[in-house]
Design a protein around this nucleic acid. Structure first.
Length: 595
RNA sequence: GGGGGUGUAGCUCAGUUGGUUAGAGCGAUCGCCUGUCACGCGAUAGGUCGCGGGUUCGAGUCCCGUCACUCCCGCCA
């Protein structure tokens, strides 16, 4: 028999009545009645109420024990009387009468209480993460994360995927995010880079003939944090398959996600066949390539209405004549909203850095539609009716309009779409809405340099007949490149890869890399593609974001065991830290401290 | 790099138009209490009001600077 416990703290029930048991755990809470003391003992599995009275010779000592002390209880299981049963506790029908005890681990005064639903500063939580992780919700989240990853592994294996590890110390690549660099001792002056993703390796695995690969892969990118983005490191479910088309990848992911979300969440999945939305269409209808499809509002282009003579809105007329565009969102059923509702949204839009939103309400009076509100008077009855037709608006709905460059209009209306829907409570919180965004452009124009660059993954396969590709118009080339989005959160990008080296040289040439540069920067890949590469493709959903969605958490730290803070510091382990001179010497490095 | 929010006891927070000795709950320490499960009651200790400077007879409160944490923009093929 184990000397610490015969049972866990979540295990005992009426069936164990009158048994002599050993329990070990933390003192979660004490309730001291002077001559009668209750101790809630907690471990990973649950909570058991232990009880002792003043007839026990250890009573005075037990009364003095601090919360979070680790103790072992030797006691007897008693059935509770009906009035004292705790229905909120799995072990609530019993309690353990303490016969003797032993302190296994003492505690200093706690910097943060474990038994509490209060929120604490991130600084204290991260510094004392081992205490924070004892708290119920985050403890459950971390366990959930483990179960999710385990479930994914089993599902992937059942679909005949093999899990392979890829190197952590690899080479820096020119495209993409900032690399984390590791100096090489044996090769002074040279550096490894931590992988931003195992992109090239997984393609090499396919070229090596391994057909179906997956990995719960750590990825490292030296970019600034966000609430849903840890600084430095995160995990991807990295997937790659040979002899597949886009649709084959979709099938695998849809099957996995539907099973996964059904297993771990009670929320409903709005479309079990995930809708496919073209990139261009998504930008028009939602203003973004990561639309939240729980949100029913749709953006419409209404630029043409401003060329009508019965529309007198001079500012927008002037701007549209100069080539600017106007798009709009309908806020349904807002006839009775106070002026402050509209002004708040306009003010909010200005705070977001836009020129604000023009708005008015469609009102039917005496059989005619007119516009009520600041700019309503500029639109004739007929123009209003035409607008309502375009926007599918009804009497009593309001229209918000943004005018400007396409990119700016998309940006602010995408935010406004979310803001208005939230203000009007139109988003159902108890649902998951997945969709695929497809047909991404291969290239885009770099706004700063005005040069052609890869818009996503440079290894993607262009669509159409690759022998007859019109390379003179690179911005028109679409790629077999796709994203999967859930509730407005981008979970993953993927692509069918370009496995033809000749074509790859041509595409890289358009993005400003000559053959020599490609050979240098992507030597592993480009060389391998020349020795019989299978058509292949894949995807890499972010594990952290999947768990966030399932756990219904807004911040990635709530589902990460030991996260860093916003400045990429580990406050518990004191990373990053300075290093000894002899370490620097060995690496032939010197530090150039800025003054 | 830029913008917003926060910073008062070990923890979570309150603190009025600037005004005597800066408060509460939890936790800690001590005492009372035999059926609680956020047990109850009483007492005690615990503060460089993030830090520095300024205005003022007087600053937790107003002003300037700075630091920390956080959210957002940039960035994230």
């Amino acid at each position: 028999m184990n000397k610490y416990r015969t049972h866990t703290c979540g295990e005992l029930s009426k069936n164990n009545k009158n048994e002599r048991v050993l329990l070990s755990g933390w003192i979660n809470k004490k309730r001291d009645h002077g001559n009668l003391l209750f101790i809630d003992l907690r471990d990973n599995y649950g909570l058991t109420q232990c009880v002792v009275d003043n007839k026990n010779k250890n009573f005075k000592e037990l009364e003095k024990l601090q919360l979070e002390t680790v103790i072992k209880i030797d006691g007897k299981v008693l059935e509770r009387e009906d009035q004292t049963i705790n229905k909120d506790l799995s072990t609530g029908e019993i309690e353990v009468s303490i016969i003797s005890y032993e302190v296994l681990g003492k505690t200093k005064e706690l910097p943060l209480p474990v038994f509490s639903d209060q929120e604490y500063s991130e600084e204290i939580r991260l510094k004392y993460r081992f205490l924070d992780l004892r708290r119920k919700q985050i403890h459950n989240n971390i366990n959930l994360r483990s179960k999710v990853i385990s479930f994914i592994r089993k599902e992937m294996e059942s679909m005949n995927f093999y899990e392979f590890q890829t190197p952590i110390l690899t080479s820096s690549s020119p495209e993409g995010a900032r690399d984390f660099l590791v100096p090489s001792r044996l090769n002074p002056g040279k550096f490894y880079a931590l992988p931003q993703a195992p992109q090239q390796f997984k393609q090499l695995i396919m070229i090596s003939g391994f057909d179906k690969y997956f990995q719960i892969a750590p990825c490292f990118r030296d970019e600034d944090a966000r609430a849903d983005r840890s600084p430095g490191e995160f995990y991807q479910l990295d997937i790659e398959m040979s002899f597949v088309e886009q649709e084959d990848i979709f099938k695998v992911v849809e099957k996995l996600f539907i099973k996964l979300f059904k297993e771990f969440s009670n929320k409903k999945i709005l479309n079990t066949k995930f809708p496919k939305i073209k990139y261009e269409e998504s930008l028009l209808k939602f203003g973004t390539d990561k639309p939240d499809l729980r949100n029913p509002l749709i953006i419409k282009d209404i630029s043409d209405i401003f060329s009508r003579d019965d529309v007198k809105f001079d500012l927008f007329k002037k701007l549209t004549k100069q080539g600017k565009i106007v798009r709009s969102i309908i806020a349904p059923g807002t006839r009775d909203k106070p002026r402050s509702f509209f002004d708040n949204i306009d003010k909010w839009a200005k705070d977001e850095g836009s020129n604000g939103l023009a708005y008015f309400t469609f009102l039917k009076e005496g059989g005619k539609i007119s516009g009520k509100g600041p700019v309503g008077k500029f639109f004739s009855n007929e123009a209003c009716e035409e607008l309502m037709k375009i926007c599918e608006a009804k009497d009593g709905d309001s229209i918000f309009m943004s005018c400007g460059e396409k990119k700016d209009v998309e940006n602010i209306l995408s935010l406004a779409r979310k803001k208005i829907a939230e203000d009007l409570n139109l988003i159902s919180e108890d649902a998951f809405a997945f969709c695929w965004i497809v047909d991404y452009p291969m290239f885009e124009l770099d706004e700063k340099t005005n040069k052609i660059k890869f818009s996503h993954n440079p290894f993607s396969m262009p669509q159409g007949d690759t022998e007859k590709l019109d390379l003179s118009r690179p911005l028109n080339i679409k790629a077999y490149q796709y994203d999967i989005v859930c509730n407005g959160i981008e979970l993953s990008s993927g692509a069918i890869r370009n496995h033809k080296p000749d074509l790859m040289y041509k595409l890289f040439d358009l993005a400003g890399y000559n053959k020599k540069q490609v050979d240098e920067k992507f030597s592993g890949m480009i060389n391998a593609l020349s020795y019989g590469a299978p058509p292949h493709g894949g995807i890499a959903p972010g594990i952290d974001r999947l768990v966030m969605l399932i756990a219904n958490e807004k911040n990635i730290r709530e589902i990460t065991m030991f996260p860093m803070n916003q400045n990429a510091q580990d406050l518990m382990m004191n990373a990053p830290s300075e290093i000894d001179d002899h370490q620097l010497k060995e690496l032939k490095l010197s530090i150039n401290k800025k003054k």
